[in-house]
Simulated scan of single mutants.
Amino acid sequence: MMSSPSCGLYQLIGGAEAATLPGSQHIRKLPGSATMCGAFIFLLALRLAGASPGVPTVQLLDHEGPVLEGDNVTLECMAGPGADMSSFSFQKYSPWLQSWVQLDAGARLRCWFYAVAVSRPGGRLLLDIARLQRWHEGAYRCAPMPLNDTFVPEPGPSNASGEATFMLHVDYLRDVWVTWPDAWCGTVGDTVTVTEGEDLELECAAEASRPPKFDWTRDGEAWTLQAQALGLRGLQQDQAGTYRCHARLSGLTQSRAVTVLVEPPAGTQRLAETAQTPGALALVLAVVLPVVLLVVLATVLAAWVQCRHPAKSPPPEVSGQRIPIFKGSLESVQGGAGDTHPLVR
């Protein structure tokens, strides 16, 4: 009896006596056995398709939707029915070390992966990550246990062969701020003052794992702008108010509010200030006039008192020397210029 033509493939791969494929037993060549050749062709197809039995894979358990910063996640290593998981370990690729790091190697890794715990309940292999952070993001794999070595210097996850890697992506949305467009360092404060009639342009930015969606609202109004930039042309007084920027990513939302104040033009503002403040004439009437009236009143009162009570002046004296008539006398008579002795001694 002639053997099936398909058995020639067996000879190309397995040799004249036996062939070995991952996850399969040694298959001996049985000439004329079409069943055995068919089984070998099936295993060969699996090998060429990259789906050989026994290749470990990593799956995310009991988690729906995107993985967010702060979540608790669990990864499980799957290696097919009946596989002995005690010979496998969880590893994470470190771009800084350029090697795979065994996560259940001991306490010396806690400085990098302090929130990572590997457990083996009931023959399973689980990896629990609590309070997921940005540095937990990256490539994970389930690989055979390395021999006395925590670090496995192999190529990056894109070039790894023999193990299926799982890329863990972490979404986060942290701070949101408002800036001036096309400004090198143009962060806007809580308040913006604009002259009436001018244009205003503001742009929203956020610290996030990937670009979020932005929209603007105005407090107290059912008004929404689906855009990252806010542009207001020819601002008027009725457009003043509080504008709020919202950033949204994977169910996370952060916002930042900016109050816009609209002032009248410079000339109109001066007229308004003049109308609201007392003028120069009013200032004179209020301060200087009472002082002037008080001075005038004091002058009139002094003149009236002078007229009612005139001052007594002494009688005019005749030029010449007065000498006493006698010693002890209080009266005197006019004497000649050349007299040097009194008339009575």
Results as ranks from 00 to 15, higher is better:
1 M>V: 13
2 M>V: 09
8 G>P: 01
8 G>Q: 14
14 G>D: 07
15 G>H: 09
16 A>I: 09
18 A>Y: 14
19 A>C: 15
20 T>P: 06
22 P>T: 08
23 G>S: 07
25 Q>I: 05
25 Q>H: 08
27 I>Q: 11
35 T>V: 09
37 C>I: 00
37 C>V: 00
41 I>L: 13
41 I>T: 06
45 A>K: 04
46 L>F: 06
47 R>V: 04
48 L>F: 08
48 L>W: 01
49 A>K: 01
53 P>E: 04
59 Q>S: 09
68 L>R: 15
68 L>G: 05
71 D>M: 07
72 N>T: 15
76 E>G: 03
80 G>Y: 07
83 A>W: 06
85 M>D: 01
88 F>M: 14
90 F>C: 08
90 F>I: 04
95 P>L: 04
100 W>Q: 01
101 V>R: 02
103 L>C: 03
105 A>D: 14
109 L>F: 03
109 L>V: 12
113 F>R: 05
113 F>P: 01
114 Y>W: 11
118 V>M: 06
121 P>K: 04
123 G>Y: 12
124 R>P: 09
125 L>H: 09
127 L>R: 05
129 I>C: 11
131 R>A: 15
134 R>M: 05
135 W>A: 07
136 H>W: 00
138 G>V: 01
139 A>T: 02
139 A>I: 02
149 D>P: 00
150 T>K: 04
153 P>W: 05
155 P>N: 10
160 A>G: 12
162 G>I: 06
165 T>R: 02
166 F>C: 11
167 M>Q: 15
170 V>T: 11
170 V>Q: 05
175 D>Y: 03
176 V>T: 13
176 V>K: 03
179 T>I: 14
179 T>K: 12
180 W>R: 14
182 D>Q: 07
186 G>R: 11
187 T>Q: 13
187 T>M: 09
191 T>A: 14
191 T>D: 15
196 E>F: 00
196 E>G: 04
198 E>F: 01
204 C>D: 09
205 A>V: 11
206 A>N: 10
207 E>S: 11
214 F>L: 07
220 G>Q: 11
221 E>T: 11
227 A>P: 04
231 G>M: 08
233 R>I: 03
240 A>S: 13
240 A>I: 04
241 G>Y: 03
243 Y>G: 03
243 Y>I: 05
249 L>I: 05
250 S>Q: 12
258 V>Y: 07
258 V>A: 10
264 P>G: 11
265 P>Y: 01
267 G>Q: 08
270 R>P: 00
272 A>K: 07
276 Q>K: 10
279 G>H: 05
280 A>C: 09
286 A>K: 15
289 L>Y: 10
289 L>G: 03
289 L>Q: 13
294 L>N: 07
294 L>S: 14
300 V>T: 09
310 P>Y: 06
310 P>L: 05
312 K>D: 11
317 E>K: 11
324 P>Q: 11
325 I>K: 07
325 I>E: 09
326 F>G: 13
329 S>D: 15
330 L>E: 09
337 A>I: 08
343 L>F: 03
